[in-house]
Design a binder for these strands. Structure first.
Lengths: 224, 224
DNA sequence: TCTTTTGTGATAGTATTACTACGAACAAAA
DNA sequence: TTTTGTTCGTAGTAATACTATCACAAAAGA
């Protein structure tokens, strides 16, 4: 199944909607590839323009700067994961099973049922892990937050929070546990690939082991 | 008590040892202030030079670039916290008490017994929370890691790992739990101040509540 | 005492990055 | 045919990142 997965993005994130033209779509698709290839610090609009090919000025007509473009991509990523989780939780009623499924989807490497092109999916996964926190780790975070640029991230955390509440309504730290789960799923994935002494899964690099750790962590907290 | 707290830093981090001259010390001290003030992205050697005051070229004689300077500061921070923990765990034998003490020191806002000047201490705390992960979230992470630039961070995680092992030798994820604890203590602190809907402590902003959450998280996992 | 060496910081650059003003091309509407 | 608007490209500027080289002073040697 490959349907056209379109997310209505916060219009303040772009100057001109990239979904509205071929050039815009090219910019987004190529940006995913280039960001993955050279990383956020080395990424420039000039290099992106060269790869498309177009000119720097054209890209500036779509996005104010590379930070806004990064937020745009990360927002797509979280909206997509959010949708995936809602879709997959459709017929699950047991909260414990729901949590397990959520963890499975957060740690995905190869997700068979995809609504994005494979290139975009793997690229966005990588970018979310390696560059995601750069969206909010900025002096400008409070202003960006006022413009609701982190809404997709908050929405997915809130949804997970609700499932935790459903599992144990007496647990007082559902918000923090939800954001910790999301953050940890990414940071541990990064550590196991790049800073092996910070994770127990660096030898096999098996995402399933990471999932067991996360389940243990979440249920340990919720069952206390 | 205020002793001269000096850490032997990885010499590959600098071109010329900043501890070896007045100018070097000024660069480090002023960098802490400026980073805290304007954040890593806006931080430039030119602005730093203006504040000292000296010239850009002088700073380049000490540090190759601002990323190396950031790693230098973050390494000081973790070495300092490491020392603090070892110092405070000196007379504690009960592993449970040790873990509680570790969590308390990781979340410190105002630490009474300090071996750094107050300005440096608060500054480094802020920088570690808001900019710390930028040290390794880089395409260059594997090369930086080969030069052991993340050793102080790994050392503190390893020490915490050993305490976890001491508490429960059957728990299989001590490395990951240790790095998760360290990361979460920072990310939740950031969230409660800037992205309040991602944390349960945003209302009171009381670090003690965060500590309770972290204790619950760690003991929940270890007691499973 | 007089050189020479060494360490230090300043001057004055270049290349790259981030961003903008303006104009050409083209198509749809009048 | 003219007008209007949309889209993209040309050609800049300002700031940032980094370097080659010079000037000076203190220390070391003759």
């Amino acid at each position: 199944m490959l349907i056209d997965f379109k997310i209505k993005q916060n219009p303040k994130l772009f100057i001109k909607d990239p979904e509205g033209s071929e050039m815009g779509k090219q910019i987004v698709a190529t940006a995913i590839g280039l960001l993955q290839e050279i990383g956020y610090e080395q990424f420039t609009f000039k290099k992106l323009a060269f790869k498309i090919p177009t000119t720097e000025a054209t890209i500036y007509r779509y996005f104010e700067n590379k930070h806004k473009l990064l937020i745009y991509l990360i927002d797509i990523y979280w909206s997509y994961i959010h949708f995936q989780i809602v879709f997959n939780l459709n017929n699950v009623s047991n909260p414990k099973e729901k949590i397990k499924k959520i963890i499975d989807l957060l740690v995905w490497e190869d997700n068979s049922e995809s609504f994005l092109s494979e290139l975009d999916q793997k690229g966005l996964f990588y970018i979310a892990i390696a560059e995601g926190s750069k969206t909010y780790l900025s002096k400008d975070v409070d202003n960006l937050n006022k413009d609701a640029f982190f809404k997709p991230y908050k929405d997915i955390c809130e949804m997970i929070e609700m499932v935790f509440k459903e599992y144990n309504s007496n647990y007082n730290y559902c918000k923090s546990l939800a954001s910790t789960l999301v953050e940890t799923s990414h940071s541990q994935y990064f550590f196991m690939h790049h800073l092996p002494r910070l994770s127990d899964f660096s030898k096999n690099k098996n995402p399933k082991e990471l999932e067991v750790f996360l389940e243990n962590l979440v249920f340990g907290a919720l069952n206390n």
